[in-house]
């Protein structure tokens, strides 16, 4: 696997390498690398805080969730599969789960994991890079949206729209992610064939 880290959060990242965030998360997963975890913290903790502050919670309450979410990143790193999710999507989900758990005082219902027959198998470097390319294309597509649509998408994913607003307002703009989703489905079919 070519290890050519991209600068965080930039859109001119090389298309043929996993993001530096994904590499940090893999270092945590595979080597319990505290320095890499420190990098993940520096990059994501302020973004988790930024997202949760939109919900009107106090900074102190938000930082408690940031703390819990980052500890879960450390604890659950072994479940991270870079062929299925970029680090950003995986940590976004963990932050949301923890936020819902705190706000609702109950666990968020989660889909069961796909049953993987062979946990020890080496991740396929081509799949990791393919997923990163999908994510890069997706980011470019989101950036190309007209500004009002892009703001709507941001509001939806950052938790500022109700479900009926999401139903009524975001369908059109998110047509742009259909190609990415088709690819995800293809990948999933491929995975399932190798599992069954």
């Amino acid at each position: 696997m070519p290890v050519k880290p991209a600068p965080p959060g930039t859109s001119d990242a090389p298309m043929d390498a996993p993001s530096v965030q994904t590499l940090w998360l893999l270092a945590v997963r595979d080597h319990r690398d505290r320095a890499a975890f420190g990098q993940l913290f520096d990059f994501y903790a302020p973004r988790i805080k930024s997202m949760l502050m939109r919900g009107g919670m106090s900074a102190a309450a938000v930082e408690d969730i940031v703390q819990d979410a980052m500890i879960k990143v450390w604890q659950r790193a072994e479940q991270f599969d870079p062929t299925r999710a970029p680090a950003s999507a995986w940590i976004y989900r963990i932050a949301r789960n923890r936020q819902i758990e705190v706000l609702r005082r109950e666990r968020r219902p989660l889909p069961d994991d796909l049953i993987s027959g062979d946990e020890a198998s080496d991740p396929d470097a081509a799949d990791i890079i393919g997923l990163q390319q999908d994510a890069n294309h997706l980011r470019a597509a989101l950036h190309r949206l007209p500004q009002d649509q892009r703001i709507m998408i941001e509001q939806a994913f950052l938790g500022e729209l109700t479900h009926s607003e999401i139903r009524d307002a975001t369908g059109l703009a998110l047509g742009t992610i259909k190609s990415r989703i088709r690819l995800a489905l293809e990948r999933l079919r491929h995975d399932l064939r190798t599992l069954r």
């Binding site: 680090a87 999507a89 994510a135 997706l138 980011r139 989101l142 941001e154 994913f157 950052l158 992610i177």
Partner: peptide, 10 residues
Amino acid sequence: EASGGIVFED
């Protein structure tokens, strides 16, 4: 989730 992750990261 990939879309959400991008918005989150940006």
